[in-house]
Design a protein around this nucleic acid. Sequence first.
DNA 1: AGCGAAGGATGGAAGACCAAACCTTTTCTT
DNA 2: AAGAAAAGGTTTGGTCTTCCATCCTTCGCT
Lengths: 247, 247
Amino acid sequence: MGRAEERLTAATLDPPDAVFAPVRSQTAFEETVDRLGTAIKLGLLAPGAQLPAERELCTRLGIARSTLRQALTALTQSGHVFATRGRGGGTFVSDPQPPADPPSAQMLAQWRETCDQRLAIELGVVVLAAERAVRADLDALDEVARMLDGSIDDFTAYRQADIRLHVGLAEATRSARLVRDMTEAQGEMTDLIGYIAHPPAVLASSNVQHRQLLAALRERDAMRAVRVMSEHVQATEHILAGLLPVG
Amino acid sequence: MGRAEERLTAATLDPPDAVFAPVRSQTAFEETVDRLGTAIKLGLLAPGAQLPAERELCTRLGIARSTLRQALTALTQSGHVFATRGRGGGTFVSDPQPPADPPSAQMLAQWRETCDQRLAIELGVVVLAAERAVRADLDALDEVARMLDGSIDDFTAYRQADIRLHVGLAEATRSARLVRDMTEAQGEMTDLIGYIAHPPAVLASSNVQHRQLLAALRERDAMRAVRVMSEHVQATEHILAGLLPVG
DNA sequence: AGCGAAGGATGGAAGACCAAACCTTTTCTT
DNA sequence: AAGAAAAGGTTTGGTCTTCCATCCTTCGCT
């Protein structure tokens, strides 16, 4: 008894577990390492590129310079960036980049939820891009698709351009939040798929989907774009499903 | 010069602004207030419901008891919960709830991005629910839809059940992360639309869409579900567009 | 030679968070 | 009626993070 005496509405059901799930308290230091590290791993900050000066960057990130320096020190020790002193110096992205480290157990355990979340972002982006993308956006993305065709024999190069394309789609929505979510999602995906072989045939068919997608966007055919993107994302998911433990 | 000497790849384009955007360092205290407060405002923790004991809740949330108590004190002072002492006591959700406070300027300034993000989550949920929802899930959601029909004259009651339905969809995907994202998105939407009049006719037509959606899910017709959900979400967006400053 | 712009380093103050107690109130059990 | 048990309420001390301000070192440019 007790439970039966409550008001008979659906509102008295048990709350979702998510309500009491652990609070994720990332420190500013951790978040900065994550943000910059992901941008580098995704190639958004290209090898050789110069980061803004520390005194400028810390204000842009809204943190103290000492905190930023902690993060940069970590990235220096991991070999992702290096710094030169004196006038004309600065902090630069290493070239070549250090080898990526294998995905953590925690990452692998949640791979399906990661893919689910990515699916959501990609679908939202594609629907909004169908509405909002202008000619120039799509032309630029076509250019990236051309580059992808030339990279089906080099997975690293392909992946870089692939990320450019997906982030570029997000940018075409003019929604900064979706761009952020997309980069986070792609960062997690990179961790997952970085260690998996992708034969050229797979990459080629993947880029066929990119082209179909861009064609649909040009016609502002949101539903067709959704269908293509859905297949595109779930193709990756099926590859992972065969190689990873059940999620 | 300089820029022209770099490697001629798309990877040398400027990084998205998102890379250097301010780092959001929410404290554990703030996040806890937010999490519990949102769950209460959404009705996931119903008026009169008892929260877990402090000693248990703090371990579930992964924070110290003193931090949890800070959050509970804040929620007590704002009138959302109250506590009774002694054995058999506990912390309970207030009934009735205090009036919601108006959306912040910052919230209003970002309303379109909030809607964009919500669209993404809803679409992802709906595609995955079409694959994964079992009979029992859909039966329960049908029940909620019936309740919604009975609440088109009471916006508050309607909104509560509406949230139940959307969060229920997310739960049907068996993806905890999507449930979390959905609750966050609905929390932000509640802030936005709480102060807007919703005539019964609007609510009725909204629930027609719910029914179409559930029918599509029963047939596992993901594309139709996407189309319905897309219209459902964008209907809200159009209402907001008429009332809020340009986003 | 020296100015200026960049990274590098230090020390202290403030605040958030945690852990472990202990206190007070109330109810249930014996 | 006594006491155990379970809940919220309180205090304290310590650790870690972050911030701020200042100063140092390097080195290209004028």
